[in-house]
Design a protein around this nucleic acid. Sequence first.
DNA 1: GTCTATAGAAGGATAGAC
DNA 2: GTCTATCCTTCTATAGAC
Lengths: 200, 200
Amino acid sequence: MPRHTSDVAPRAPSRQRLVQAASELLRHQGLAATGVKQILTAADAPFSSLYHHFPGGKEQLAGEAVLAAGGFYQQQVEAVWDAAPDLASSIAAIFDGAADELLASDYADACPIATVALEVASTSESLRRATAQVFDAWIAAASSRLTAAGIPAGQADGLAQAIIALLEGAFILARASKSTQPMRGARDAALTLIDQRLAT
Amino acid sequence: MPRHTSDVAPRAPSRQRLVQAASELLRHQGLAATGVKQILTAADAPFSSLYHHFPGGKEQLAGEAVLAAGGFYQQQVEAVWDAAPDLASSIAAIFDGAADELLASDYADACPIATVALEVASTSESLRRATAQVFDAWIAAASSRLTAAGIPAGQADGLAQAIIALLEGAFILARASKSTQPMRGARDAALTLIDQRLAT
DNA sequence: GTCTATAGAAGGATAGAC
DNA sequence: GTCTATCCTTCTATAGAC
């Protein structure tokens, strides 16, 4: 029986590489500043593969990139959350991990969808919905974990939303100032909010 | 003595109109999606006035627009803050005012510089500095008011930063979901943080 | 599925007359 | 300071051969 024609590790298919490359570029510089040619170059994909795989063009690719990046980031955070021994440790680890990622990337790798979310909120209804869908999934995942950790069910959604707001806001301040200090402050604030809810 | 050649109320000079128009467009759709021709049209300014008043082109105009918008927004918030009878009322009024502005503008008028801040953080050092300067001014103004209201001096800066992070994060979530609910949740979280710090 | 070529519009910026 | 005209690049998207 003949083996595969090549024994080198196969690359991901070009469609997947395009989504991956688009996700990274959107995270670093947003949607409007990212050209389709730039995405194609980064993905090392043939030019016409874009409109072959994404008949909707840039908007369709961006939508899939937002959903993929949002899902991937959620998995990352959930892994950190679930690895910590208690709720406070989980929250601290998430904010500390965000600070580490900012430092390691020279403040390029922050929230993968916040920039796009602000850009498209008033200009593209389909992309706005994609960003909203990601945030909703994040809030739902955090809320269920908060409930499991003893936060009253009626307060878990609001607390999850506030913690994510703190994280997003800290990303903005940290990238603008090139400092991880806002991220540490946001961590402490999030821990305060949790303590107060658990004490009730 | 002849009067002025016209008795109609004079418009602001074109330079000022360009900064104003740029500020509004950046707030709604960000930097990369905003063209200089679009700014000129919105300002009703003659084409060549752009490079006459701003030899640095789009980047210089954007920088001035960020600083102007940041200063104007700070004045707005300070007026709301100082009009309220106590600290908790001030904080509540600021978040409620942000929610009102979102509703009134169909979720277009959020933070005037957050979108640009995320877009340029890794792509334009001069504009990144402009956004950082605005955030620093906001934090300093909030911190001094927190100190005056009884927050220990060593905690005022961090608390101010956390409150602004909550506001920024809530803007993102609110615009993405087209709901003011994240803004109300952020308000309650900010009030909790203040209570906890005052109780210490 | 991939290739080259190119359309057609919009981007930022400049020149030179007035 | 303002006017019109224009340069050159980049953008998204499509056509048609292979």
